[in-house]
Nucleic acid binder design. Structure first.
Lengths: 224, 224
DNA sequence: CAGTCTTCTCAGCGCGCTCTCAGCGACAGA
DNA sequence: TCTGTCGCTGAGAGCGCGCTGAGAAGACTG
């Protein structure tokens, strides 16, 4: 899941980046409003965390412009508690949720996941393919009722493949959305596909995670 | 689909080439503006990815000259984010789209596809000929509801023939667009036409992929 | 600081894809 | 019918893609 964090205060930005990456998100940073607006327009993010007090262009205006352009990416606004804008303003502008600094990190993550879940409405809270299920909020994976332990990277990979189940997903797309790079050695994807198979397919005698040679991978919607 | 990438920075150029080839494009590289201009003039490309900061001749000028020569090949401009030119300049010059570095790889591919689609006057997302269909995005081929597995080369060949369905396409055109060469033995085309027939025609008792002796091949619009 | 877990790199290997080649059949012109 | 050309196809060689085991490096825990 790709997150854009627009925050000018370096320490806060770095902390958010580290924290969210640990949760398995792919995080990009923008340090002022112009940069943030541009990134949000072109970056294909699943959610945007947007500070209000920003150099060059306020978060307030970034949000307004995005909505004016019919860009409906979920936005979570952040503001200092003594700021001149309050929650009502933020939500009026088209933000989807709102947090006041100082906020609890755990609350931030919970709200982000809530946004991702709510987004598009048709996205189910629990992703499924046959008897294989993944719950993004609870970080839980099951096959046939049995819980499966995954590392953060494995989890992010499976989540992305499940969100695009039945589609053929190229290694470069996977690198982009799960690793947040595109010029890395694609072998790392092959390695992690191997790890996943040994956890979600092999023990169950299934074949959900299929190779499409020369094109990428496909997660079978029926669970293999 | 032939893409020209004009980019002086070797690592970026190589990464783009690898990535786009993985997406099924035929990619040529040019490493400075003069070279790029020359290639764009004579290379018969479907789209050009053009960096702005280039040795010898800027992307800015390459674009300007091409348009002055009435060359309307779709151009996607790339610029460093702190560059002296901005989006408005690029679009004013006749570029069709514009991306700022660092950009998302997936967005680049999506924009390229959008340009290609727009260029041909709203190409349908799914190519069809009778009950034979090919979905470039999902990389899926079906006949009569049955999924058909194709190798990358077979897929590229069928895609090209479908885009020019009902037309007689010569072997040299096919070599040019699917193999990205023109001095190879045309026999390889015959071999792959044979492979395709055995997958899309023979099992269904059809004859969509027809030989026009002395001229080339034609994919029948009604699916044979 | 040791021990564990996670991530990622690397090298080797097996197989599927690609392409070449030769032989043969189909076709057109004489 | 004969002949030369064009296209088709089966066989097979080469190699590049994808998979895997080993292990190094780094993060985290006790």
């Amino acid at each position: 899941m790709r997150v854009l964090v627009v925050e000018d205060e370096r320490r806060m930005a770095a902390a958010l980046q580290r924290g969210l990456q640990a949760e398995g998100f792919a995080v990009d940073l923008a340090h002022d409003g112009e940069e943030g607006l541009h990134a949000a327009r072109h970056g294909d993010y699943d959610v945007v965390v947007l500070d209000i007090m920003l150099p060059r262009l306020s978060g307030y205006n970034v949000c307004k412009r995005l909505r004016a352009e019919e860009n409906w990416v979920p936005i979570l606004m952040l503001s200092a508690k003594d700021g001149e804008y309050d929650m009502a303003d933020g939500l009026d502008l088209g933000a989807d949720d709102y947090l006041t600094k100082p906020f609890s990190y755990v609350v931030l993550v919970a709200r982000l996941r809530a946004l991702l879940r709510r987004d598009a409405g048709r996205r189910p809270a629990v992703l499924q393919a046959g008897d294989l299920s993944l719950d993004p909020a609870r970080r839980r994976v099951e096959r046939d009722g049995t819980a499966i332990e995954l590392t953060p990277r494995e989890f992010a990979l499976l989540e992305y493949l499940l969100r695009r189940r039945d589609e053929v997903v190229s290694k470069s797309e996977i690198l982009e959305h799960v690793w947040d790079t595109f010029d890395t050695d694609p072998n790392v994807v092959e390695v992690y596909v191997g790890y996943l198979r040994r956890k979600i397919d092999v023990p169950f005698g299934r074949n959900a995670l299929q190779t499409v040679r020369g094109a990428g991978y496909r997660l079978a919607g029926d669970g293999g």
